[in-house]
Amino acid sequence: MDVTEDAVRDICTDAVFERGERYREEGRIHGIHRIDTTVTAVVSGSRQYDVRVDLATNGFAPWCDCPYDGPGACKHVVAVLLRCVDDPPADEGDRLDATLDGADADQLRAFLRDELATNTDLRDRFLARVGEPTSQSVDEHRTAIDRRFEETNPEYPVVFEPINFTQWFDLASEYREQERDASAATVYRALVESLDDNMERVDGAYDHFSRAFSRALDGYVDCVMTAERDADAITDAVAFLDERATSGTPLLAEHFEKAAVELREKLGEQSDE
């Protein structure tokens, strides 16, 4: 995708574009790097924010760890993209490849193992990339997600700011790319359950949590349809959705009902085959 001002304007509001433009002009972008089409940077605001964009993806697949919850991309993402319009960072992919090619295999393995031993997010994505099915249950993933809600505002049972669920969505995407849809469904279901059970704690950034819930529920249904070929497995998924529609957050009941209908139609199609 061409990185132009018009393309950047398409992914944000006019107000955010102006703020991002001002951030770029004020020199708030630090440590910007590019590997192939992926650009990462640090942008200083009320604190330092990590930004990632993909220049080859429609819409640039923006990611930032700031609490912005408005429509479109945030000002930090916009600032980085505008920097890419004016002064694109050099691609360091060839240098990285050359370093990897020249690295000692034992040293590389030792380094990777040390990193995987201490970084659970990286370890999960690595195992997903090399074709390992998830060893974690829905409850185990859910415990980690629930902890995010508890850590966000430990003094009160209320969540005011967005929570970053990227590590779980990235993990599910990694499983899907490896065609391990059952493992991806496990991650998505954990997100669905946690978001459903914690939604009544949310008192701010509601759109953020609603979008995360819809994305997780859609991912779960898609993976169940793709991964589960036997009628009993789909029936179990429908039972889960029906139960959540009656016992979960009332505002989300309609979403669960629609998802259950979609899976029932899939079940009917299989019965006709």
Rank of each mutant, 00 (worst) to 15 (best):
E174D: 13
S194R: 08
A233I: 01
R211I: 12
V238R: 01
L241Y: 01
V202G: 02
E174C: 15
A212P: 01
D232Q: 10
S183D: 09
A185P: 05
D242P: 00
A172F: 11
D230T: 12
T235L: 11
D203N: 14
A190Y: 00
A205G: 09
M225G: 13
H208F: 15
E179S: 12
T226Q: 10
D218V: 14
L191E: 13
V192Q: 04
D222P: 09
L241M: 09
M225K: 10
E177G: 04
R229F: 00
F213T: 12
A205C: 09
M199D: 09
E177D: 09
A212V: 07
Y175P: 04
V238K: 03
A205F: 12
T246L: 10
Y175V: 05
E177C: 03
R244Q: 02
A231S: 14
D196T: 12
D242G: 01
L217T: 04
S173A: 15
G219R: 00
D230L: 12
G219L: 05
R244D: 00
R215G: 15
D218E: 11
D196L: 02
S183C: 04
S183A: 11
I234K: 00
V238M: 01
A205T: 07
D222Y: 11
Y175I: 03
L241C: 02
R189K: 08
A227Y: 02
E177W: 02
Y175Q: 10
A216N: 05
Y206V: 10
Y220R: 09
E174M: 13
H208I: 15
D207C: 13
R189M: 08
A227W: 06
A184Y: 06
T226Y: 10
S194E: 10
A245M: 07
L195V: 08
